[in-house]
């Protein structure tokens, strides 16, 4: 089970079994965003409250595989209370961790992100999701929540 334990690290299973920040927020003032992974049918719903350039509150919904739902939970915990800029940096760092670079996201930033820029970013628990990279078809499960977050931040701006 070595391969599997790389994918399903204990912290991931913990977030899957006990997802953080589940629920809804009133819209408005919160902004609601949804994303789907057509391959697996994963669904992520995100309620974002952004005030004065800070993600003041986050709630999540949706359904899907353990990786997509754990990633959603871990993302919500990581960005809650962070500035929008820090949240965007975290998105880039997480995408770099997954080794995929979507020009769409980088273009939306208007700045080039280099490895050096990301070197100082602390991913903490999120690094547990790195094992997903060994299972290429599951990468989209892990990145779904982050794509939804990026869309939500753009739309809330």
């Amino acid at each position: 089970m070595t391969g599997l334990q790389d994918l399903y690290r204990e912290i991931i299973l913990d977030h899957y079994r006990a997802p953080r920040n589940r629920g809804e927020l009133p819209v408005p003032p919160a902004h609601k965003v949804e994303g789907f992974n057509p391959l697996c049918g994963d669904e992520v719903v995100l309620y974002l409250e952004v005030e004065g350039g800070v993600v003041t509150d986050v709630r999540t919904g949706g359904q899907g595989c353990s990786i997509s739902q754990a990633s959603t939970s871990m993302m919500s915990a990581a960005v809650k209370g962070k500035s929008v800029d820090d949240a965007r940096t975290l998105i880039r760092a997480f995408k770099a961790l997954m080794s995929i670079h979507e020009s769409k996201l980088e273009g939306a930033e208007g700045t080039d992100t280099t490895e050096a820029d990301l070197a100082g970013v602390r991913l903490g628990d999120l690094e547990a999701l790195q094992g997903v990279v060994k299972f290429p078809v599951r990468i989209k499960c892990a990145t779904l929540a982050w794509n939804v977050l990026a869309q939500g931040l753009d739309e809330s701006a």
Binding site: L4, C40, C65, I67, F135, C141
Partner: peptide, 19 residues
Amino acid sequence: HAHDVSQVVDEVGVCVRAG
């Protein structure tokens, strides 16, 4: 989830579709 099931059974050489 079906994808998690497929992933685990793949560890022992079992190919089932999920989706």
